[in-house]
Design a protein around this nucleic acid. Sequence first.
DNA 1: AAATAAATTTAGTCAAGACTAAATTTAAAG
DNA 2: CTTTAAATTTAGTCTTGACTAAATTTATTT
Lengths: 222, 222
Amino acid sequence: MEQTLTISIQDYLKNIYELTENGESASTNALASKLNVKPASVTGMMQKLASAKPALVEYQKHQGVTLTDDGKKAALEVIRHHRLLEAWLVQTLGYSWDEVHAEAEKLEHVISEDFERRIAAAMGHPLRDPHGELIPTADLQMPLDDSTPLSSLRASQSGIIQYVKTADSELLKHFETLGLIPEAELEVTGYSPFDHNLTIKIGRKSIVLGLNITSKIYVKES
Amino acid sequence: MEQTLTISIQDYLKNIYELTENGESASTNALASKLNVKPASVTGMMQKLASAKPALVEYQKHQGVTLTDDGKKAALEVIRHHRLLEAWLVQTLGYSWDEVHAEAEKLEHVISEDFERRIAAAMGHPLRDPHGELIPTADLQMPLDDSTPLSSLRASQSGIIQYVKTADSELLKHFETLGLIPEAELEVTGYSPFDHNLTIKIGRKSIVLGLNITSKIYVKES
DNA sequence: AAATAAATTTAGTCAAGACTAAATTTAAAG
DNA sequence: CTTTAAATTTAGTCTTGACTAAATTTATTT
Ligand SMILES: [Mn+2]
Ligand SMILES: [Mn+2]
Ligand SMILES: [Mn+2]
Ligand SMILES: [Mn+2]
């Protein structure tokens, strides 16, 4: 159970984790488009991961996949690497939050456990990455997330941004411009049922945000 | 000329560079044992690198290989990454000089040019890595090395250690114990012609070193 | 229930980079 | 010059992880 998994496999597992966080299984197509790979390639890899010893995914034809406990551990290991690296790149090398993702994406697969421990310790064991996302603990537990998408709030509800869920650096720059960053407080002042736009007050400004944005901002209601 | 070379190719080029620093060409066998690969695999890769456009090596059957200018640039890029990373790991994460090599060996292939620039700047553009080895400049020139192996000194000659050339962590720990580190001053007090042992005085101690050690310590005569 | 569309799987191919075994070339000795 | 050993190359195989095209399964409409 302690062989080193290939970079491809690590990426598959990480992406399956993200697609199954909601409890549903990950479809072949969803995985394929997330991984920039053809569906046929995903099927092949799922068959392989399902019949690995120990199995890393639970797979049934046409039913999508979920992670086994072993698969989840492996996924959380990669995610911990990724998020610690992002935090470290920002803190020690002055990367901005829209620049870190690509670099961390490559480094996550090659750092040693020793390196992981050293940067975690150097930063005082941070709980969140620069986007506010929770960092799996050293023993590979994902901390509880008590936030909800901003898109689920309605007029008069207010909250504090916990994290933004995107790797799109243009969108991240946009978020920053608008002050939509972790810890920021906001209040929903309006909701447009047809296009799902929300009007929110943040700082002293009032802005209108579409679902494509509000679904990527996670807040803790207050 | 700016495609990204595979990790394997980067490793081949780096090792060819090291084997040809003395001016000679690198033999198939030498390369194979350095890369932990079979000679047949080396031949295959040399044919590929020689016929790449642009060619990365100059290769003639049974004659060994040398790097073309393009190949040398690529090799120096990897070596610059490696040595900057070693320096960075030691300076910011407290790695010891016997621990850094393996980590840098993996990271060297995946960091971006941006990352390279950032760590170089953060350290004030260091000239040498933790072992004292010269770091290729940002424009990929290898600085002139004015040192010679300790093994070439004889009684009454003295020098200052410039660098130690080994990746063996046990040997590095041994060097450290003996004070055989960059900047250290030493004097040769004796030479045994049959086994090539040198007696040297370093600090207030006198020690006898075999060729296997003295050939890996590079000094500037003083 | 049949037809169509969408999602998924199967089958067969390809490139990279390793390997083994056999053939060949060069170098060293007699 | 011939033999033998060592180094190197050739030929053919394997694994990984992609791909395309075709077949199949599931979901949606009429
Ligand atoms: Mn990745
Ligand atoms: Mn992040
Ligand atoms: Mn390497
Ligand atoms: Mn070094």
